[in-house]
Amino acid sequence: MTTARRRTLAALFASAGVLLGTAACTSSSGSLPGSGALSYDAVRSTAEKLRQNQGGQDVCPFGLDLGKALTAAGIPGTATPDTGDGRAVDGDTGSGAPPQPWPSGFTHPPEMPSVPARPPHASVGCDWRVDGTPVRAELVATTQRGVAVNLVLPLIQRAAGAGVDQLQQISTDQPAAGQAKLVPGTGGAALARVPIKGDGDLILLVSQDRTGAELDRALAGEPLRRAAEALAGQLR
């Protein structure tokens, strides 16, 4: 592995570190009316049921309706569940992990002697097609406040086409609870931090699922941010 590659991976690990997740700056990016109606336990129990239901389901839980969000955001188009792989809704859970040693010979940040611990987490993903354009909403909850964004940086990198510097920016300039903002990169992803009931952290990542393909500009940039804001405001 080259020195440049090691530095790149070190930056990615650092930006994904839970220890950095508690420092979240905000910008004027809109606000959500969320009431904190969802808890970590509610998201996890739903994710577990989705994992057990191998047949999947088409209706996104928690009241998430992309069609209504598009209308609220002033975006034309018809949203339908994307069942291309047999299911439009899926769930996943993780039990977390304690701090881990860095791989042998890996150059790591001196202030981070080990790979940071990861708290338990759960996610629910919903897929739609908007007049042919694939759109995915990923709701992610964790038991530790302020760390959900950093836990999903790999998802954000894929969705937004973000580079290392942009991932660092996302890690340090996160939306506060009740805010939605566009993720730096291609303009194909937006992120909202949703008020949560009880302890933990809850975020919603909305993106075009068009890896390697040209973005639908009607659903990118500020329009996508408005759609994410409207979608997150539906959570109940």
Rank of each mutant, 00 (worst) to 15 (best):
V152P: 00
V152I: 13
V152N: 04
P154T: 14
P154M: 11
P154W: 13
P154K: 11
P154G: 13
L155H: 08
L155A: 10
I156C: 02
I156L: 03
I156D: 01
Q157E: 15
Q157T: 15
Q157H: 11
A159Y: 03
A160Y: 03
G161S: 14
G161H: 14
A162M: 06
G163E: 11
G163V: 07
G163R: 04
G163I: 07
G163Q: 07
V164G: 01
V164C: 04
V164Y: 02
V164H: 02
V164R: 05
V164Q: 09
D165P: 00
D165W: 01
D165C: 00
D165R: 07
Q166W: 00
Q166L: 00
L167M: 08
L167A: 06
L167P: 02
L167Q: 07
Q168K: 08
Q168L: 08
Q169D: 11
I170E: 06
I170L: 05
S171A: 15
S171V: 11
S171C: 09
T172E: 15
T172I: 10
D173K: 02
Q174F: 07
Q174D: 13
Q174M: 09
P175F: 10
P175N: 12
A176T: 12
A176G: 14
A176Q: 14
A177T: 10
G178R: 10
G178I: 12
G178Q: 13
G178D: 14
Q179S: 14
Q179V: 10
Q179T: 15
Q179L: 07
Q179E: 15
Q179I: 09
Q179C: 08
A180E: 06
A180D: 07
K181Q: 12
L182V: 06
L182N: 05
L182Q: 13
V183R: 01
V183F: 01
V183S: 02
P184R: 00
P184D: 03
P184N: 03
G185Y: 07
G185P: 05
G185H: 08
G185I: 09
G185C: 08
G185F: 05
T186C: 01
T186L: 08
T186M: 05
T186R: 09
T186Y: 02
G187D: 06
G188P: 03
G188Q: 04
A189L: 03
A190R: 03
L191F: 05
L191I: 05
L191N: 03
L191A: 03
A192I: 03
A192E: 09
A192W: 04
A192R: 03
R193V: 15
R193D: 14
R193Q: 14
R193A: 15
V194Y: 04
V194L: 13
P195M: 09
I196Y: 11
I196N: 14
I196T: 14
I196S: 13
I196Q: 15
I196G: 12
I196V: 15
K197Q: 10
K197E: 10
K197W: 00
G198I: 12
G198N: 12
G198T: 14
D199A: 11
D199W: 00
G200T: 09
G200K: 06
G200Y: 08
G200A: 09
G200E: 11
